[in-house]
Design a protein around this nucleic acid. Structure first.
Lengths: 199, 199
DNA sequence: CCTATTTTCTAGACACCGCCTAGATTGAGC
DNA sequence: GCTCAATCTAGGCGGTGTCTAGAAAATAGG
């Protein structure tokens, strides 16, 4: 058996992995640099070489979270199907992610609140532009402002539903039904508007 | 000048007051029992007579938060005006509260997530039944399920908008516009697109 | 190949925190 | 007035994040 080498080699990745797991089952409060170091089998000061701060570790986690969410949304968007079907998939993917990784989601959003510009903004931007493109395909005719409003309203509603489910206020199945209802009213009103104006 | 009395007298209230302020400007992480004790001019162990836990203090804060939100919603609901006007006021009051006391709001909802039954549930229930009554007055005609869906969708959307604003992703003014748009689409689709066609 | 430099990790220290305990002080009820 | 429960003090324990000095290993340059 090999002696534990002085250099771990890929501590950073291991720490992030471990942190992701801890985050899932213990929340942000259960995350401690010292504990992560212990799990990785290094001294308590080792993580400092990769993350100056505890916040720095949290930021990195948030960034990875945005990447993952972006991928999820993109694949949900990519498949074939009706327009509302694709939107429904996106919505569900979004909500699912927010529920399964509630603590991560929290991190991702409060990260922007603290306002540190950085790679997080970039990752978040990627997600938003993805969403933007999808919505742009929908209402090529609508004016820019109403498109923006629709986009934000979409995001807000998904976020809200996810929050309700994640906080245990409503069941997951109900959450799905809510997603459907939301899509219906939003798309319905939007499409209705178009029909009215075009007639 | 009077000597500092051994018995503070109303430590509990002072601690809660101080905690509310700290919560507003430093978030949950900035809340420490020892710091609160220092601010109140008592020893670091004193708060323990009133709050066994740190969590216990947080729970008390959440409960007060629900009370305040309920009052805000109730007064917004009480005034005169059009049906959609009153709804708009409620929505705005809800969002305003969630923005001004974002950390408190977070506490209130994660408190339910941890699932401890107690007075928080009670306070939260009061808020919800208030909202319920208001929504019940609206759609006396709709079936129960659609009413429930509408209620939850309403709450979710408000929550989501508040989260977007609180996280600094969108401006407050945009948040207000979002609230209007949300009310429009939701009431519109529910009431037969009256609002939509009028825009 | 050998040396200089940079990165990575160890180890110890400091201040802070939540929580626990023993004991002093006070106010209230008998 | 005396007892008793509530309140507050003071000290200690283990845990944490952060800082520092220095050892160890990878990397680069001659």
């Amino acid at each position: 058996m090999t002696q534990k080498p002085f250099h771990h080699g890929n501590l950073r990745a291991v720490l992030l992995d471990e942190a992701t797991m801890v985050l899932r089952e213990s929340g942000v409060d259960g995350l401690s640099l010292r504990d992560l170091a212990r799990r990785a089998g290094v001294s308590h000061g080792a993580p400092r070489s990769h993350f100056v701060d505890r916040q720095s570790l949290l930021d990195a986690l948030a960034e990875l979270g945005f990447d993952r969410l972006t991928v999820a949304v993109r694949t949900a968007l990519g498949g074939a199907g009706d327009l509302s079907a694709r939107f429904g998939r996106v919505a569900r993917a979004y909500v699912d992610f927010a529920i399964d990784d509630a603590a991560l989601m929290e991190l991702m959003f409060q990260a922007k609140a603290t306002g540190r510009p950085g790679r997080i903004e970039e990752a978040a931007g990627a997600l938003f532009s993805t969403l933007d493109g999808a919505l742009g395909a929908r209402s090529a005719e609508g004016d820019d402002e109403s498109r923006d409003v629709f986009k934000m309203l979409f995001a807000a509603t998904m976020q809200g539903i996810a929050a309700l489910v994640a906080s245990g206020r409503i069941e997951r199945a109900q959450g799905d039904r809510l997603v459907d209802a939301a899509m219906e009213t939003m798309l319905g009103s939007a499409l209705g508007m178009r029909a009215v104006t075009s007639s």
